[in-house]
Design a protein around this nucleic acid. Structure first.
Lengths: 233, 233
DNA sequence: GGGAATTAAAAGTACTACTTTTACGTCACA
DNA sequence: TGTGACGTAAAAGTAGTACTTTTAATTCCC
């Protein structure tokens, strides 16, 4: 139904995970493993493995004599890329997009500052390359190409920061940018001001100007937030 | 050996997860499920469930005809609280503590700013209470009590920010503070300057002064980073 | 009416048999 | 000698069954 998937496990996991994160089962809902096995037409073995994974994401809790209980949103591992993807695919994408964008606005400026201090020449080169790529594709309905450069740019910044936790947010940023592009304004061209800012960040990093890189990235973030305010409830 | 644990699954998971995050199995190491079953003296069923969870954390990858391969650090879900706990318990605690503290320094100031805008009266009260608690326990070898207030304080700030992603970092902050306290300087009293700053943050939030709350929290973060620089390689 | 004993429901565990994928080695052919 | 088709076996994946353990809920006794 949702994903063909190779392997029963993946299929059941994707379906259940999506359903839970979409709020189809309100917190407190109790599922039984045999029931699930029957519903998905797989063995209890498969269901149990899926439940264990869901449990490790704190989406559900499994207790003897009770069953598998759906947990409230507050306990979910919302940093799990899988969970993020499910939620962005589901109903509360707007809320999720906003939370993540605020997170970005906190993290990316600091990451850019560190990148200015730690970026390798190679990373500087990549940064410039992608910034120019953004310029080149910022007009004429080339949003898909633009998106690729945008994602790559931010990923390089996060990696260049030298901080592992920042680096691992690359996937999150990618999901946010992709979701944003594929959701609203696919037809319009990106904000020219933002494009310029990216070029300037690349410059600042190349010139090892941490304060400037941080400030410019902060401006990008503010812009993204404002854009979201305009286009979302 | 590590945890008695209730349930074979938890035990095997804890042992294996800890071993992998500790680097006992270099990336590329291949484990076989039957072998693991034998080693832990449990059924393959249990091992498979554990592997599935480990796989969802991107610590390992399971492929047919090959086995269970340990993945490089770069692909681990480093935001998974479980993974964080394992890593903090292991060998590279210093590195980990630094990464997490940098993350905090990026996130918490922004969270504090938002908290000043969104905190409920109840949350303001709690904030003040814990800040005063920190003051009260900041002298006379009462580090354990101090820690409780410190953790609670930061948790309230993160929750009060109203941002879900920030809120979920409460556990991470708790782990960092706990690790920090239980590692170095158990015997010394906390930095008085930091204590004062916490009181002031509570004040700023209560007075809805977002800019001040943000700035003060930034100072706390800077202090924490400096402290780490002094006490760690 | 409250607390102890009983029951049964559901997850947890084990084991066994079978299927599916796929790395690797073999062999034929160019 | 190199290259591609092919076969084989190793390991994970799946299924099903039987049994154990925990524990919520009911019953029953005082």
């Amino acid at each position: 139904m949702t994903t063909p998937a190779q392997g029963l496990h993946s299929h059941v996991l994707a379906t259940l995970g999506l359903a839970i994160t979409a709020g189809e089962y309100p917190p407190g809902t109790v599922l039984r493993t045999d029931e699930l096995a029957q519903r998905f037409d797989v063995s209890r073995t498969v269901v149990r493995e899926v439940v264990r994974v869901l449990e490790s994401m704190h989406l559900v809790e499994s207790r003897r004599r009770v069953g598998v209980t759906v947990l409230p949103t507050a306990s979910w591992n919302v940093y799990d890329p899988q969970v993020i993807r499910w939620r962005l695919a589901g109903a509360d994408r707007p809320r999720q997009l906003r939370s993540l964008t605020v997170l970005r606005s906190a993290v990316e400026p600091v990451a850019a500052g560190l990148a200015a201090e730690n970026a390798t020449p190679e990373q500087c080169r990549e940064l410039t390359e992608h910034a120019l790529g953004m310029v080149a594709t910022s007009r004429g309905r080339r949003l898909e190409e633009y998106l690729v450069h945008d994602i790559a740019f931010h990923r390089v910044v996060l990696n260049a920061s030298g901080n592992e936790m920042f680096a691992r947010l690359g996937d999150v940023v990618a999901e946010v940018l992709t979701g944003r592009t594929h959701h609203h304004v696919m037809f319009e061209d990106p904000d020219p001001a933002a494009v310029t800012l990216h070029v300037q960040v690349a410059e600042a990093v190349r010139e090892r100007d941490a304060a400037r890189a941080e400030e410019l990235t902060r401006q990008i973030a503010v812009g993204a937030l404002q854009e979201l305010d305009v286009l979302a409830p």
